[in-house]
Design a protein around this nucleic acid. Sequence first.
DNA 1: TCACTAAATTAGGTTTACCTAAAATATTTA
DNA 2: TAAATATTTTAGGTAAACCTAATTTAGTGA
Lengths: 239, 239
Amino acid sequence: MIGKDLGEKVEECLEVLFRLEKNNERVKTTELAEKLGFPLSSMTVLLQRLANMGLVEYEPYKGVRLTDKGRKVAIKIIRRHRLSERFLTDILGLDWCEVHEHACKLEHAITDKIEEKLDEKLGSPAVCPHGNPIPTPNGEIIFEKDIPLSELQPAEEAIITRIIDENPALLRRLIAIGILPGVKITVKEKSPLGGALVLKIGDYEVALGRDVASKICVKTSTAPHRHRRRMRHGAKSRK
Amino acid sequence: MIGKDLGEKVEECLEVLFRLEKNNERVKTTELAEKLGFPLSSMTVLLQRLANMGLVEYEPYKGVRLTDKGRKVAIKIIRRHRLSERFLTDILGLDWCEVHEHACKLEHAITDKIEEKLDEKLGSPAVCPHGNPIPTPNGEIIFEKDIPLSELQPAEEAIITRIIDENPALLRRLIAIGILPGVKITVKEKSPLGGALVLKIGDYEVALGRDVASKICVKTSTAPHRHRRRMRHGAKSRK
DNA sequence: TCACTAAATTAGGTTTACCTAAAATATTTA
DNA sequence: TAAATATTTTAGGTAAACCTAATTTAGTGA
């Protein structure tokens, strides 16, 4: 064997758990199970097993949280996932709206050696095709300081940093109206109370539901210097 | 899910079974188990399951043989394995003596789409880095007519076509003395009864054990036209 | 606070994939 | 050909990963 295998289920679980954790709060078993498409009862048993392995802190009925050890594994998988996505778009030429699910399989087959060579070949990219940061080989994640598009006010200008959704259908729709990482947009109108936003993209104007807008992150051009926050695995995020 | 999964064990088993089958003869359970590194008892049970799925013909105590359906699956996996190897050497720059084991993991993560794009990117290569033919998308395998180096007679010239072994240590040794696919060699001496061969490679002479020589295939330059044999999955090989 | 509902866990059953050890079958040799 | 030996299968047990159907716990509303 070429690298110890924790099992795909375990890896997937840690990966999704990492993305679901916000503000160091525990994640509910149900939420995890839903995102992973696992049956609830299997989820419970898996979490108990992960707890035994020291990868998560698990309190029945309370929820689950990654340990430092678990977070380390999660970040490694996420690195491989995002490098796989870059490989699929940059080298093989797949559409970035469809790479996520292919990368979900690939990530578990990437050995240390392949990871190293792939990163080299790709020129150590900072972000995946969706705009999410690719962890460094040591497990550092460099976040760009960005905010949901839905929080922008009329007349504000911003550049799209990332799209937090992997649904190919949604991504295709967004691409069709010119929304992808790196693009500059201006808010023309904003209906109150969760209503739509009207954006100017290039020479066109498009309307976008608030729910979709909340899945798109932007950095406002009012802050020309990039504010970066470095995070090492194991670091507690400050509230 | 992105492609129905037969399970890695099943895929590996069919793949190795394909390579072990010669002259349409049944393969022994033990031989298969050894090559796969599976325990014998697990092997038996797996073969029974494969037989139920219609992928092999299995007769207890007699051995096992691929069905057409099983052969089709095997060829698909072999295609993905060899494309993966080409990817690892040609695109990522890994040494070809070490790509086999990495490809063993990768092959199961290659989706139809990735297979298609990878083949395109690589320029539809005919052979893997070891010189083995890569099956076409329809499952055709185009064999070069070659013979084991150990069958050459003194003074015969030939070009190395393939090396039928994946052991990194052995491959490294062979590369060190200039033995790799495409290289021209001449037999200088041949000791009788399984003894060593002395070869001329470029300006050097090297000695090679008969056992190692039998793992190296060559095409003799006496037959300038390539004799090719096309084989479709399911075709019976003529004795 | 007590009952009720929703969330989460446990219980019990299946399949795959491993293990060890025992039994059955085939082959060899005396 | 019969006994000895080697090969192969079956038996019985464990763990992961699923399933469905209880049961237990937590949170809510009357």
